[in-house]
């Protein structure tokens, strides 16, 4: 393939990755923004979403589309409930102390990961996409006879990948509506600004925290359900999304939702494009080091304006 079509293909792959990453990172950012705690177990909630999607689709059987739609609703819901429960049982009792929360969520990480290993097993399992039509893409080129269109071999995407991008956009809009327009959004923003004052005004802050923790995990699970027909479900699949989400949330500015979205698209795209052209290990080294340096010299992230 020539450079132009190759780049288009890499961009499309990057967009799919960016969509999933946006949802996952938004979950982490929401939790940090409202509760001021870092959830290290976030990647495991992502993994649980994928594994539950496999359970749901293999239980329901029948047509792939019905099973997948069921998984799209059931998996995030269950993961959200589980996370809210973990918040209620553990995090609430340690008063959301930032450092102790990190240690406790590291504990949760291993509990979730190892219980999955014991029940689901060490193998990766695929989930069938609900629809998967191959769409060939045209490429345009200037030749002597003017603009001409042709269909390069290998330049194609699938209807499912386009669906992932669309689903992420719809979820983003829904979340934005919720935060900006609804009463619940008002409560969340009030808690984010000042938890104590919010409580003085009669907001049940502890319940809000449990809800936010659940919502954050559900967003990660949703991203995972979307990605699982492309990647397989595996009990260790939470590690990479966790690191990438960290990177996104830091670059975007801790707690800033808008920054998170911008950074997720930027990083998801460049990760997709870089991994097409360069060796993944070197790309990861540079990315990790770069982010550490950003955090050292710009602790509020590239887009974060107010001090954390």
């Amino acid at each position: 393939m020539e450079f132009g079509p190759h780049l288009l293909l890499a961009t499309l792959e990057g967009l799919v990755q960016a969509s999933v990453l946006t949802l996952t990172a938004l979950g982490l950012s929401l939790v940090f923004g409202v509760m001021r705690v870092v959830n290290v177990a976030h990647g495991e909630f992502y993994m649980l979403g994928a594994v539950l999607a496999w359970f749901v689709t293999s239980m329901i059987g029948g047509s792939a589309a019905i099973g997948f739609m069921a998984a799209l609703i059931i998996a995030p819901l269950l993961v959200g409930l589980l996370a809210a429960l973990a918040d209620w049982l553990v995090l609430r009792r340690i008063d959301y102390d930032p450092e102790r929360t990190i240690v406790a969520t590291i504990g949760l990480l291993y509990i979730i990961q190892q219980v999955t290993l014991m029940t689901y097993g060490p193998d990766a399992h695929p989930v069938a996409p609900p629809f998967n039509t191959r769409l060939a893409l045209p490429w345009f080129e200037f030749t002597d006879g003017g603009l001409s269109m042709y269909w390069p071999w290998g330049l194609s995407t699938t209807s499912y990948k386009l669906f992932v991008i669309a689903a992420a956009i719809v979820t983003l809009l829904a979340l934005w509506m919720l935060m900006a327009k609804s009463k619940l959004g008002l409560i969340l923003r009030a808690t984010q600004l000042d938890g104590e004052t919010a409580q003085a005004f009669g907001i049940p802050v502890e319940k809000v925290y449990a809800l936010v923790f659940g919502m954050g995990a559900a967003l990660a699970a949703l991203g995972a359900v979307l990605v699982v027909p492309i990647q397989q479900a595996h009990y260790l699949m939470g590690d990479d999304p966790l690191l990438l989400s960290f990177i996104v949330v830091i670059i975007g500015g801790l707690g800033s939702l808008r920054g998170t979205v911008v950074a997720a698209i930027l990083i998801g795209m460049s990760d997709g494009i870089i991994s097409v052209f360069f060796t993944p290990t070197l790309a990861k080294i540079l990315a990790t080091l770069l982010v550490a340096m950003v955090l050292v010299y710009r602790p509020n992230g590239l887009f974060g304006a107010k001090p954390a």
Partner: peptide
Amino acid sequence: MLVVGVVLVLLTM
């Protein structure tokens, strides 16, 4: 590693 996780959570609590 499950044991590690459980002990970590119990310790912090």
